[in-house]
């Protein structure tokens, strides 16, 4: 396949391709989330979230998305789901909780939807 044939940007509904554009946009947010691999960093964040955002130089949209614990806003601000999962982990949110939030249903309804796909 030639490079010309590959359209990087044909939209897939409900899907943000995390590419170089997004990687640039979300670098600070993702770097902060990556730090949460360490327990000490998670505690430091919880002790003073605003100071921790400043340490990683998050922009206003990223800070607001984190404060709202809103995954779609975090993705729009450049967040990558693999790193965001570590942010979610601080608040003990499962991937079903996150899925429910993004699709505007309850966690139970989201789990039901997953089960139905097995029918």
């Amino acid at each position: 396949m030639s490079i010309e044939e590959f359209d990087h940007h044909t939209p897939i509904p409900g899907t943000t391709l995390f590419d170089g554009e997004m990687a640039m946009k979300g670098y600070a947010l993702n770097k902060m989330c990556y730090s949460f691999n360490g327990a000490a960093a998670r505690q430091e964040y919880l002790n003073d979230p605003m100071a921790y955002y400043a340490k990683f130089k998050l922009n206003e949209a990223q800070i607001q998305a984190c404060e709202n614990k809103n995954v779609l806003e975090m993705i729009a601000a450049g967040g990558n789901i693999y790193y965001l999962a570590k942010f979610a982990g601080i608040f003990k949110l499962s991937v079903q909780d996150i899925g429910a939030q993004q699709t505007s249903v309850t966690t139970e309804e989201f789990k039901e939807k997953l089960l139905r796909q097995g029918d």
Binding site: I12, G14, I98, Q117
Partner: peptide, 13 residues
């Protein structure tokens, strides 16, 4: 599987 976005929960048997 898809974890992120409004299409979260997508599975394609």
């Amino acid at each position: 599987h898809q974890l992120d976005g409004e299409r979260a929960g997508f599975i394609n048997r």
